[in-house]
Amino acid sequence: MIGLDSQARIWLCTEPTDMRKSFRGLSALVRNQLKHDPLSGQYFVFVNRRKTQMKMLYFTATGYCLWAKRLEQGQFRVPLSASGQRALTLTDLQLLIDGIEVQKYRQFKRFRGV
Protein backbone atom coordinates (compact mmCIF):
# COMPACT_ATOMS: atom_id res chain seq x y z
CA MET A 1 0.00 0.00 0.00
CA ILE A 2 0.95 3.64 -0.17
CA GLY A 3 2.96 5.04 2.71
CA LEU A 4 0.18 6.88 4.55
CA ASP A 5 0.63 8.43 7.96
CA SER A 6 -1.63 6.85 10.59
CA GLN A 7 -2.82 10.36 11.50
CA ALA A 8 -3.78 11.22 7.91
CA ARG A 9 -7.30 12.51 7.30
CA ILE A 10 -9.03 10.29 4.73
CA TRP A 11 -12.40 11.14 3.20
CA LEU A 12 -14.52 8.70 1.21
CA CYS A 13 -17.01 10.16 -1.27
CA THR A 14 -19.99 7.82 -0.87
CA GLU A 15 -21.70 8.99 -4.07
CA PRO A 16 -20.66 7.34 -7.37
CA THR A 17 -17.95 9.18 -9.28
CA ASP A 18 -17.12 9.28 -12.99
CA MET A 19 -13.76 7.51 -13.21
CA ARG A 20 -12.84 9.41 -16.39
CA LYS A 21 -12.05 12.37 -14.15
CA SER A 22 -8.42 13.04 -13.38
CA PHE A 23 -6.59 15.64 -11.26
CA ARG A 24 -8.66 18.69 -12.16
CA GLY A 25 -12.05 16.96 -12.20
CA LEU A 26 -11.52 15.19 -8.88
CA SER A 27 -10.09 18.29 -7.19
CA ALA A 28 -13.20 20.19 -8.36
CA LEU A 29 -15.37 17.46 -6.78
CA VAL A 30 -13.44 17.81 -3.53
CA ARG A 31 -13.93 21.57 -3.51
CA ASN A 32 -17.55 21.76 -4.70
CA GLN A 33 -19.19 18.53 -3.50
CA LEU A 34 -17.23 17.52 -0.41
CA LYS A 35 -16.52 21.15 0.63
CA HIS A 36 -12.85 20.51 1.46
CA ASP A 37 -9.63 22.08 0.25
CA PRO A 38 -7.91 19.65 -2.16
CA LEU A 39 -4.54 21.29 -1.36
CA SER A 40 -4.85 20.49 2.36
CA GLY A 41 -2.82 17.26 2.21
CA GLN A 42 -5.86 15.16 3.12
CA TYR A 43 -6.70 12.02 1.13
CA PHE A 44 -9.91 11.81 -0.93
CA VAL A 45 -11.24 8.43 -2.13
CA PHE A 46 -13.75 7.99 -4.96
CA VAL A 47 -15.54 4.86 -6.26
CA ASN A 48 -17.50 4.42 -9.50
CA ARG A 49 -21.17 3.45 -9.79
CA ARG A 50 -20.44 -0.26 -10.39
CA LYS A 51 -18.03 -0.21 -7.40
CA THR A 52 -15.28 -1.85 -9.43
CA GLN A 53 -12.89 1.12 -9.63
CA MET A 54 -11.38 3.35 -6.98
CA LYS A 55 -9.28 6.50 -7.17
CA MET A 56 -7.53 8.37 -4.38
CA LEU A 57 -6.42 11.98 -4.79
CA TYR A 58 -4.02 13.78 -2.48
CA PHE A 59 -1.64 16.71 -2.61
CA THR A 60 2.01 16.68 -1.60
CA ALA A 61 4.53 19.51 -1.50
CA THR A 62 5.42 18.88 -5.15
CA GLY A 63 1.92 18.39 -6.62
CA TYR A 64 -1.14 16.20 -6.92
CA CYS A 65 -0.93 12.40 -6.68
CA LEU A 66 -3.55 10.06 -8.06
CA TRP A 67 -3.74 6.40 -7.06
CA ALA A 68 -6.12 4.03 -8.85
CA LYS A 69 -7.30 0.43 -8.50
CA ARG A 70 -9.57 -1.61 -10.76
CA LEU A 71 -11.05 -4.90 -9.59
CA GLU A 72 -11.20 -7.81 -12.00
CA GLN A 73 -13.84 -9.53 -9.84
CA GLY A 74 -16.14 -8.39 -7.06
CA GLN A 75 -16.95 -4.93 -5.78
CA PHE A 76 -15.74 -2.45 -3.21
CA ARG A 77 -18.05 -2.32 -0.18
CA VAL A 78 -18.77 1.40 0.13
CA PRO A 79 -20.60 2.35 3.33
CA LEU A 80 -23.53 4.71 2.81
CA SER A 81 -23.68 8.18 4.29
CA ALA A 82 -26.43 10.79 4.13
CA SER A 83 -23.91 13.61 3.83
CA GLY A 84 -22.22 12.10 0.75
CA GLN A 85 -18.89 11.67 2.52
CA ARG A 86 -17.44 9.62 5.31
CA ALA A 87 -14.25 9.91 7.32
CA LEU A 88 -12.06 6.81 7.25
CA THR A 89 -9.15 5.65 9.33
CA LEU A 90 -6.10 4.12 7.71
CA THR A 91 -7.35 0.69 8.81
CA ASP A 92 -10.79 1.35 7.29
CA LEU A 93 -9.16 2.31 3.99
CA GLN A 94 -6.97 -0.79 3.96
CA LEU A 95 -9.99 -3.03 4.66
CA LEU A 96 -11.96 -1.29 1.88
CA ILE A 97 -9.11 -1.75 -0.61
CA ASP A 98 -8.61 -5.41 0.37
CA GLY A 99 -12.36 -6.16 0.17
CA ILE A 100 -12.78 -7.08 3.80
CA GLU A 101 -16.08 -6.21 5.47
CA VAL A 102 -16.14 -6.35 9.25
CA GLN A 103 -19.58 -7.42 10.46
CA LYS A 104 -18.88 -7.18 14.16
CA TYR A 105 -15.92 -5.34 15.61
CA ARG A 106 -14.75 -5.33 19.19
CA GLN A 107 -11.46 -3.93 20.35
CA PHE A 108 -10.20 -4.90 23.78
CA LYS A 109 -8.40 -2.54 26.12
CA ARG A 110 -4.65 -2.53 25.73
CA PHE A 111 -1.93 -1.10 27.90
CA ARG A 112 -0.41 2.05 26.42
CA GLY A 113 3.01 2.93 27.72
CA VAL A 114 4.19 6.50 28.06
Rank of each mutant, 00 (worst) to 15 (best):
M54A: 08
L57Q: 01
M54C: 15
S6L: 15
Y43R: 05
D18R: 10
S27T: 14
A87W: 03
T91S: 02
H36W: 15
A87N: 06
G84V: 15
D98W: 06
V114W: 08
W67D: 11
I97M: 04
L12N: 01
D5V: 07
I2K: 08
F23S: 11
E15Q: 08
P79S: 02
P79L: 11
F46R: 00
T17C: 03
L96Y: 00
W67L: 04
Q33I: 11
I97Y: 01
T52E: 07
F108T: 13
I100Q: 12
P16Q: 06
T52A: 10
Y105T: 14
S27N: 07
F108G: 10
M19S: 08
P38H: 05
I10G: 05
A82T: 06
C13M: 14
R110P: 13
S22W: 07
Q42F: 08
R31K: 14
L39H: 11
P79W: 02
I10H: 01
Q103I: 05
Q107G: 08
G84N: 13
C65R: 04
Q7T: 15
Q33S: 15
S40M: 07
R86C: 08
L88H: 00
P79I: 10
E101W: 06
T60W: 09
E15P: 15
L96F: 00
P16G: 02
L90Q: 04
G63C: 03
N32M: 15
S27V: 09
K109N: 08
V30T: 05
L12Y: 00
R110G: 05
L96D: 00
R24D: 02
M1S: 15
S22E: 04
F108P: 06
T14Q: 12
K51D: 09
A82P: 12
I100C: 13
I10S: 12
D18N: 07
L4C: 10
L90M: 02
F23E: 03
Y58G: 09
K104M: 15
D37P: 15
Q85K: 08
G84Q: 02
E101F: 02
T89I: 01
E72S: 10
D98A: 11
R49Y: 06
Q94G: 06
G84F: 09
W11D: 14
Q107M: 11
Q94S: 10
E15I: 13
L26Q: 01
Q33Y: 10
V30R: 00
K51W: 10
G63T: 05
S40Q: 07
K55M: 11
R112A: 13
